Amino acid sequence: MTTWITVCDTCKGEDWDASTHDRPHGEDMAELVEHHAQGRNVKTRRVSCLMGCTHGCNVAIQAEGKLAYTLGRFSPDAESAAAIVDYAELHADSDTGQVPYRQWPQGVKGHFVTRHPPLPKSGD
């Protein structure tokens, strides 16, 4: 199963202001995540709005048949993007999507917003 990193490209952090920023923080984060994901065992995609506006720079980590996670409160920087991709790759390597806490990259600790169980298989 492919693990996807879905990046909200419309997220704006608390410091965002039209007079000082020419685009949303989410676009910066999306570019950084896409860069760090190149050649890795995950795929990326962008969406406009994950509806986590108070959490800023939101991403979802998902794969069919696995637990899914929403993470937020990131700064759009290379360290955060690298940690997101590292965590997503651990998610990809897990049978259930659950990654033991001791394996979490430091950069994702404190950024988990929600966890969703996998959808039931058709007909269940």
Rank of each mutant, 00 (worst) to 15 (best):
64 E>P: 03
93 D>H: 06
3 T>L: 04
93 D>M: 03
50 L>G: 14
104 W>Q: 02
53 C>P: 06
110 G>F: 01
120 P>G: 05
98 Q>D: 14
16 W>R: 14
101 Y>T: 09
11 C>F: 12
96 T>L: 05
40 R>Q: 09
92 A>K: 02
45 R>Q: 14
110 G>W: 07
88 A>L: 01
44 T>N: 15
64 E>S: 14
62 Q>W: 05
35 H>T: 13
78 A>I: 06
111 H>N: 04
87 Y>G: 01
19 S>L: 05
99 V>W: 00
38 Q>E: 00
63 A>I: 06
101 Y>W: 07
82 A>F: 00
109 K>F: 02
55 H>C: 00
40 R>P: 07
84 I>Y: 01
40 R>V: 03
16 W>M: 14
65 G>R: 09
11 C>I: 14
85 V>N: 09
108 V>K: 07
105 P>D: 02
30 A>Y: 14
21 H>D: 15
117 P>I: 10
98 Q>S: 13
78 A>G: 01
61 I>T: 10
91 H>T: 08
21 H>G: 14
52 G>A: 15
43 K>V: 08
73 R>H: 15
32 L>I: 07
64 E>R: 10
100 P>M: 01
47 V>F: 08
91 H>D: 04
84 I>E: 00
11 C>Y: 12
92 A>M: 10
82 A>L: 12
46 R>W: 03
123 G>K: 03
98 Q>I: 13
31 E>G: 15
103 Q>L: 14
42 V>T: 00
64 E>G: 13
48 S>D: 13
71 L>Y: 07
116 H>E: 13
66 K>F: 05
34 E>Y: 08
12 K>S: 08
68 A>Q: 12
114 T>C: 08
98 Q>T: 12
96 T>G: 10
69 Y>I: 05
14 E>H: 10
38 Q>K: 11
21 H>S: 15
90 L>H: 07
9 D>V: 04
